[in-house]
Design a protein around this nucleic acid. Structure first.
Length: 528
RNA sequence: GCGCCCGUAGCUCAAUCGGAUAGAGCAACAGCCUUCUAAGCUGUAGGUUACUGGUUCGAUUCCAGUCGGGCGCACCA
C-alpha cells in the first residue's frame, strides 16, 4: 500500500503524519481510527526520537519528534556551514540546463527576466542535490531574423547621411539599432553602400547585441558554460543525418517542394509540419531536433529547457521528432513559464520589440537592483501569470518582500557585531559541548525546528524545479527568527552561557538564510 | 473555431503530485521602541477556492461542462 508520511501544515498535528489507516479502512472495512489504534499498538519506536504519538482527525497517526532531536541538530547545522542543505542523491549525475538562448537580434527585454532568473536558481538547486550542471545557451545566428537585423542596421546606417532612406516595414525599431549604425559609421564613414555589405551589417549587429546580452546576464551573475552554436549542426552534418533518418524511417515526405514531418494525430498533433522549406532552408524545428539529439548524445542524465508559454506548443513538436527517431526523450524536461505583466502601481504596460520605448531587462535592473530583480521573478511559481509591480520592487521600505528576508540576515549580523564586542569568547566554543538544556523557550525550539527542515525543502524544491518554494521557506525562517529575536534577549553579559547558546542559534539561522540566498542567487547583506 | 496554461481574502500570491479548521505579505483597524536595527513584533477583521455537476472516507487539487483571462495555432523563430 502506498501510504504517505508528511509533515502536517499545523504544528499541533505533530511533526510527521501518516495516512495509512485512512487508506486501509476500505479494504479492511473497519473504522480508520480503530485501525490507527491497532497500528500504534504494534509500532516500535525509539522514545528518544519520538516523544508522542496520537490519533487525530479522521484517522491520521501523528508523531511528535522529541525536542532533543532538534537541539542536537544545532551542531549539525553549524558544522556543515555552506554545505548544510546539500545532498548527494544525484551525485555522479550530470544535468544540462539550457535557457535564455535569445537570438542576437536585440537586447533582453524585461520579460526575459523571468526566464533568466528562473534558470539561474534552478541550476543552483540542481547543484545542491549533487548534479554536475552545464549551463548552456543555444546561439541561433541563422534564419530570416538575422537578415532582418542586417536590413535594419543598413537602413539606420544609410539614414545617417541619407535621411530619406526607407526603414524596412518589419525592421527592428529599437534605438540600439541606431547605436550599431553609428558605430559602423564612425569606423567606415559612408563607404558601405551596396547590398554586398549586408554580411558586414549582420555581423556588426550580431556582435553588438550579443555583447550586450552577455553584459546583462553578467549583471545578474549568470555565466553560461557553453554557447552552443546552431551553425555547428550544419557544419558537422548532424542536420543531414537527421533528415536521412527521418526519410529512412518513412517519417518524412516531400510535397510542394518542401519536406514534411509526419505528425502523429493520436498524440494530439493536428497537421504535419514542414522541416525543410521549398527554398531549401530548414525551419527552426529541424536544427532544434538535431540539437536535442546532440544533447542526449553528450550523455547527460537530465536535460532541461526553459521556455516562455509562447513556445508551449512548439517544443512538443521538437520532442516528438526526437522520440520518433528512437531517442529517450524522457530525459528532457521542459519548464514552461507564463508571461509577465509589468505594472507601475496600477498602470500596466506590455513589452514590445517593435517599439523603441520597450522596457529592457537592463532598465529593470537599473530601476530596482539586481537582487530585487532576481527575487521578484523567482518569488512565484513559474506556471502562474506574474504581475510584476515595479513600483513595489523599487520601494525601499518594509512593503518590499525582499527586504524582509535580507533584514533578518542583517539583524543577525548586528547581534554578532554586538557579541564580538561584549562576548568575544563565543567564537571559540566547541559546538558539540553546548549546554542544550538552556534551550527552553518556544521561540527557540520553533526556530530550530524550521531550520531542521531546510535540507528537505531543498530536495522538494529541486525535484519539481520550483525555486519559489525556497523563498516561501526562507520567509518562514525569517518570520521565526524575528519572533525569536523579540522574545529572547541574545547578548546578555549577566548570563554568558545562555548568551552563547542563543548566539549559536543565531549563527545557525544565519547559515540557513545565507544558503537559501545562495540558491536563489541574491546577496546576504551584513547591514541594511 | 482548435490546443496549452490559469482563475484562491480588497490587491499580489502559497497550499508538501487527494488530506485535518485553505495560509503569508500588502492594504485596513488596535497595540508594542530608556534593552542586540521598529525594514521588526503582537492582536483583530477579511473566503461558498469563478460557476455547476461527478468520482470517495475526504476535492483548491482528479474528471465533465459553463463563464472569464493569457499564450499559441506559418514553407517566422
Amino acid at each position: 500500500m502506498q501510504f504517505q508520511i508528511d509533515a502536517p501544515k499545523e504544528e499541533k498535528f505533530g511533526d510527521l503524519s501518516v495516512n495509512a489507516a485512512l487508506l486501509l479502512a476500505k479494504e479492511l472495512k473497519l473504522p480508520p481510527r480503530k485501525i490507527a489504534e491497532d497500528i500504534i499498538k504494534n509500532l516500535e519506536y525509539d522514545p528518544s526520537l519520538i516523544s508522542k504519538t496520537e490519533i487525530a482527525g479522521a484517522g491520521f497517526i501523528n508523531f511528535f519528534i522529541a525536542d532533543d532531536f532538534y537541539k542536537k541538530n544545532l551542531s549539525v547545522i553549524l558544522s556543515h556551514t555552506s554545505d548544510y542543505g546539500k545532498s548527494d542523491i544525484h551525485k555522479g549525475q550530470t544535468a544540462n540546463l539550457e535557457w535564455v538562448s535569445a537570438n542576437p537580434t536585440g537586447l533582453l527585454h524585461a520579460g526575459h527576466g523571468r526566464q533568466v532568473a528562473l534558470g539561474k536558481a534552478i541550476a543552483n538547486l540542481l547543484e545542491w542535490t549533487g548534479y554536475k550542471v552545464t549551463r548552456e545557451y543555444y546561439y541561433n545566428d541563422a534564419g530570416n531574423q538575422m537578415n532582418n537585423l542586417a536590413k535594419s542596421v543598413q537602413a539606420r546606417y544609410m539614414q545617417i547621411f541619407q535621411p530619406d532612406f526607407p526603414f524596412p516595414e518589419d525592421g527592428y525599431a529599437g534605438n540600439y539599432i541606431k547605436d550599431i549604425a553609428k558605430k559602423i559609421y564612425d569606423e567606415k564613414k559612408d563607404s558601405l553602400k551596396d547590398s554586398d555589405d549586408m554580411k558586414y551589417f549582420m555581423k556588426a549587429g550580431e556582435e553588438h547585441n550579443f555583447d550586450l546580452i552577455k553584459k546583462t546576464l553578467k549583471r545578474l551573475g549568470i555565466d553560461h558554460d557553453v554557447f552552443f552554436n546552431e551553425t555547428s549542426l550544419y557544419e558537422n552534418s548532424d542536420i543531414k543525418k537527421v533528415i536521412a533518418e527521418f526519410k529512412s524511417r518513412d517519417l518524412a515526405y516531400e510535397e510542394d517542394g518542401a519536406l514534411w514531418l509526419k505528425m502523429n494525430k493520436e498524440e494530439g498533433f493536428q497537421k504535419d509540419k514542414v522541416i525543410v522549406k521549398s527554398t531549401g532552408e530548414p525551419t527552426y524545428r529541424l536544427p532544434d531536433i538535431a540539437y536535442h539529439i546532440n544533447k542526449l548524445n553528450r550523455g547527460f542524465d537530465l536535460i532541461i529547457d526553459i521556455f516562455g508559454s509562447d513556445h508551449g506548443d512548439t517544443y512538443k513538436e521538437v520532442l516528438y521528432g526526437v522520440k520518433s527517431l528512437g531517442h529517450d526523450s524522457s530525459k528532457i524536461k521542459v519548464i514552461i513559464h507564463q508571461m509577465v505583466t509589468f505594472k507601475m502601481g496600477v498602470e500596466s504596460f506590455k513589452m514590445s520589440k517593435r517599439s523603441d520605448k520597450s522596457y529592457q531587462l537592463d532598465d529593470l535592473i537599473e530601476d530596482i537592483g539586481a537582487d530585487a530583480t532576481q527575487f521578484f521573478f523567482v518569488m512565484r511559481g513559474a506556471n502562474t501569470h506574474l504581475d510584476f509591480d515595479i513600483e513595489l520592487a523599487k520601494d525601499q521600505s518594509e512593503k518590499n518582500p525582499v527586504f524582509y528576508l535580507q533584514y533578518a540576515h542583517a539583524r543577525i549580523c548586528g547581534i554578532l557585531r554586538n557579541a564580538e564586542e561584549n562576548l568575544p569568547e563565543y567564537k571559540n566554543i566547541d559546538t558539540k559541548k553546548i549546554n542544550l538544556e538552556l534551550i527552553q523557550t518556544p521561540e527557540e525550539l520553533r526556530l530550530l525546528k524550521v531550520l531542521a527542515t531546510f535540507p528537505e525543502e531543498v530536495l522538494t524544491a529541486a525535484s519539481g524545479f520550483e525555486p519559489h518554494k525556497i523563498i516561501t521557506y526562507l520567509n518562514e525562517v525569517a518570520e521565526n527568527f524575528h519572533r525569536f529575536y523579540h522574545n529572547n534577549r541574545v547578548v546578555n553579559i549577566e548570563n554568558t552561557e545562555l548568551s552563547i547558546t542563543r548566539l549559536l542559534i543565531c549563527l545557525a539561522a544565519k547559515n540557513v538564510l545565507k544558503n537559501g540566498f545562495d540558491i536563489i542567487g541574491i546577496d546576504a547583506p551584513e547591514r541594511m
